[in-house]
Write a protein that binds this DNA or RNA. Structure first.
Lengths: 127, 127
DNA sequence: TGACATCTACGAAAGTCTTCGTATATGGTT
DNA sequence: AACCATATACGAAGACTTTCGTAGATGTCA
């Protein structure tokens, strides 16, 4: 029984901040998020409490202002999200997904070179 | 300002069927979906009525059993979903997204070759 | 034409997500 | 010690999603 706890949109925004800061209080997370998207302090607090229950984050409650940390790495979460999208919207066609990414986002020469390297790796493994 | 109506999970499953069949009645959609995921007929009906209101599908009501059609192509929808994921979970890094795709899904030699070709195209455009 | 199978319309329950207000606890400062 | 700024806990409203039951319309066939 995999605990495939897919974060919601609001939760993902909070995780994003936590990944960048490593450890953060509700206040710190709220300060960052509030810039892009005005939102009450207790809204962020409540979300983070829910995320604690869901197991998305863990916290250190030894000080008055609890310190939170993401429980999964950004990498793991991204992997799950991609896997999910691949299933749900692309019927498993990696080809089409990559195609859309390249079309959607202008990609620098460096990035393209990097992607080419990853393909070479994948082809190696295929042998 | 595009009405960026992101389909929900259940709606996406229905769209998937509609894209494959081109045009379909509720009965036909239900038959397909019910195989993978048991679900009442009126559930699918209701969903499709909601999708009509949202503008995700259109229908021809001239016969007793209305005939539905997806309003957006699969391509357009996939593009929006990728764009969305890129924003929300990858902060715009196409590189990381592609990396995860290649890691997540075993990709055939043919597909890899195809992806290489797309990269060549992108590099051409970059010049 | 009348019965039956099948269709649509619609209300509503149950679950989830997002948001915030209010109550209460706590630590530091005077 | 009392005050004040700041924390957490928690309930609950409102929106959205998913699900289905029931009522009523309609086409077909004996």
């Amino acid at each position: 029984m995999t605990k495939h706890n897919k974060p919601t949109e609001a939760e993902l925004e909070i995780l994003d901040v936590l990944w960048r800061l490593e450890r953060a209080t509700v206040r710190e997370v709220h300060d960052v998020i509030n810039e892009r998207k005005p939102m009450g302090y207790t809204t962020v607090l409540k979300l983070m409490q829910i995320m604690l229950e869901k197991g998305l984050v863990e916290r250190d409650s030894s000080s008055k202002a609890h310190v939170y940390r993401a429980k999964q790495t950004q990498n793991e979460t991204q992997k799950n999200l991609v896997s999910d999208l691949l299933d749900k919207a692309f019927r498993g066609s990696a080809l089409r997904l990559v195609q859309h990414v390249l079309e959607t986002k202008p990609t620098s020469a460096d990035e393209l070179a990097e992607i080419r390297r990853m393909i070479a790796d994948a082809e190696e493994k295929n042998k």
